[in-house]
Every structure is written in C-alpha cells, then in structure tokens.
Simulated scan of single mutants.
Amino acid sequence: MDRLRGMNGTVHGGVADGRPSLARDTDMCEAILALSGTTNGHLAAQGFATLARRTGTGFDGLADEHKKITFADTQARPVPVTTSPEWSGSETGGRRYSAFTINVEHRKPWHTLTGRQHFFLDHDWMHEAGEALPIYRPPLNMTVLFGEPGIGEGGEQGITVRYLTPHSKWSIHSEYQDNLLMLTLSRGGPTIWMSPADAARAGIRDNDWVEALNRNGVVVARAIVSHRMPTGTVYMYHAQERVVDVPKSEASGRRGGIHNSLTRLMIKPTHLIGGYAQLSFAFNYLGPTGNQRDEITVIRRRSQEVDY
C-alpha cells in the first residue's frame, strides 16, 4: 500500500481517505500489477512461504522477491512475469512456463480430493451423467438445439462450418498482439483459417475479407486458406481484440467483433458441483466453460471495400 501511495498519490477525504488513489486508468493498472504475485515478487515470496506451511514442502528460490513490474515496464516491452503460487508452473531463471512443474518438482499436492492426479470422479452427479471416468462426448447439435444451419450447408452465399478458437499463435499470452514483432510474424489483423474446399464452395480466396455470423454475433476478418485445415472446420485464434485492423460489419453495421463474438457459455449440471475438492468453483479454473468444439458459424465472402 505504501508503494502504491508513492506511485499513485493518496486519496484525501471520503471513504477511501488515506488509501492509494485510483483516479486515473494508469493508477488502476499499477494497483493490479502491485497486488498480483506474478508481477510483485514480494507477494510471490509471501505466498510461497504460506504455501510451504500448509503443504510441508519447500519452495525456496522460486520467487524473485525483489522483482516488481510497473505499467511503464509493460509499455516499453513485453515483460516476463515472476514465478508465483497463483500458477502451477515455474519461470525461475528464464525457464519457459510448463504447467504443474511445481507439483512434480517441489511435491506440492494437487488441488484434488486425494492430493494426486486422478481420473475417477466419485460423485453422484458425475455417475448420473456417465462421466465418472473420462469419455468422449460428440459436439452438440446446434441445428436441433438452436435452429442453426447444418455443417456443410451453403455455397456462394456462405458455408456453415464448425468454429474453433485455439490458443493464439501471434500474441504473447493474451497480450501484445500489436507489438511490432507479433504484427510482422502475422498478417497484422484478425484472421480466420479455413480449408481450400470450404473456401472454394463459398467463393473465398486467400486474404479475402469475410464475415462469420451466427445467433451470437458477427466477426469480420481476413481468410487464410490453408491445406492444413480440415474440411468443415475453421479456426480463429483467440485474443484477436478489436485494436488492429478491424472494419465494420455489413451484417450489423458495428465494428466487426472478436473471436468470442460467436461463442457463448453453455452450462451443464456437472459444472455446478461445488464444495468437492477440485470440483469447487475457482475463477479461470473450474466453472461454466467455453464450448470449444460445439459452436458453428456461417462464413461468407463480403465486399472487399471495408469501412472503419
């Protein structure tokens, strides 16, 4: 708190009297960075000390107690975060992040009922759903559920395809996609990957502007036509935000969306199990999930004269 007061200034009067100011957007950014163990090494070291007492294992040397990342640091260049108990991987010594290395190498128990990795979930709801052990579930039928056109339907006016949003290839985690290096490695804007067969049926050529539309929203992007894509499926890599080369949509008249404009959370009963070891809600870890293989979209070639 003292460090934040020195950076942001102090509030005078009111309910926040004496607290660090959050009056500016940069003040809020500094507060977020100061209060996370991944960007404030002091908090990471404190967290590992608490974790060591709880688990009876040691985490010495993982946290860089003196490392502090400020908002100015993130503006100057991409900055690696510090190793923190908020995550399960180690980046100490310049190591690249790999999940669960702290569990394996420092014997931190997994957040499960047994403290170990396990595949059998002995819970009444999981048994009722037939999912006590990992099983295959086919993608949902969006035609039956929501009246969407069937996969493969269409032609020159657009083709219906399965819509997937894999982890981004051209950003650094989910940020810095507008970094010059990232822009140089990519096409410098939103893209949707599709197969030559699907592209030919819809009259789409590589680098054409296209629109993807379903009951949830619309996306405007350039088509990447690649033999590496299976027929019937398109990719839009995630974290392509509306900050670089996103024109307005012909369908909506608004700026043409992001990767999540076409997706929505859909809840199944097993997502609502609570208070049961790892089946307890934790933001970003367990809860209603993105539906990675279920969503579909109609994708069509649009006017190549775009308006921003």
Results as ranks from 00 to 15, higher is better:
144 V>I: 12
144 V>P: 00
144 V>L: 14
146 F>D: 14
146 F>Y: 15
147 G>Q: 05
147 G>W: 03
147 G>L: 05
148 E>S: 10
148 E>A: 12
149 P>F: 05
151 I>K: 00
151 I>F: 00
152 G>H: 01
152 G>K: 00
152 G>D: 04
152 G>P: 01
153 E>S: 14
153 E>L: 09
155 G>S: 14
155 G>Q: 06
155 G>F: 01
155 G>V: 02
156 E>I: 11
158 G>I: 07
158 G>K: 03
158 G>T: 05
159 I>E: 08
160 T>H: 08
162 R>Q: 11
162 R>L: 06
163 Y>R: 08
163 Y>M: 06
164 L>I: 14
165 T>Q: 07
165 T>L: 02
165 T>Y: 00
168 S>R: 00
169 K>Y: 07
170 W>R: 08
171 S>M: 06
176 Y>R: 10
177 Q>V: 01
179 N>Y: 12
180 L>K: 08
181 L>C: 00
182 M>G: 00
183 L>Y: 01
184 T>G: 10
184 T>N: 10
186 S>E: 03
187 R>D: 14
188 G>E: 04
189 G>I: 07
189 G>N: 08
190 P>R: 02
190 P>I: 06
191 T>W: 01
192 I>W: 01
192 I>E: 02
193 W>V: 12
195 S>V: 07
196 P>Y: 02
197 A>D: 13
198 D>C: 04
199 A>H: 05
199 A>L: 07
199 A>D: 08
199 A>I: 11
199 A>E: 08
199 A>V: 11
200 A>I: 00
203 G>D: 03
204 I>H: 01
204 I>N: 05
205 R>M: 04
206 D>M: 02
206 D>I: 07
206 D>P: 01
210 V>T: 03
211 E>S: 05
212 A>Y: 02
215 R>A: 07
215 R>M: 09
215 R>C: 01
216 N>E: 15
218 V>E: 09
218 V>C: 14
218 V>D: 04
219 V>C: 09
219 V>M: 11
220 V>R: 08
221 A>E: 03
221 A>N: 02
221 A>L: 02
221 A>C: 04
222 R>A: 06
223 A>C: 08
223 A>E: 06
223 A>Q: 06
226 S>C: 07
227 H>K: 14
228 R>W: 07
228 R>K: 13
230 P>L: 13
230 P>G: 02
232 G>T: 08
233 T>R: 09
234 V>S: 08
235 Y>K: 01
238 H>E: 15
240 Q>L: 11
241 E>L: 15
241 E>G: 15
241 E>Q: 12
242 R>V: 06
242 R>C: 10
243 V>Q: 12
243 V>H: 13
245 D>G: 02
245 D>E: 13
245 D>H: 10
247 P>E: 10
247 P>N: 10
248 K>N: 14
248 K>C: 10
249 S>Y: 03
250 E>K: 09
250 E>P: 01
252 S>M: 04
253 G>R: 03
253 G>V: 05
254 R>N: 13
255 R>Y: 11
255 R>D: 11
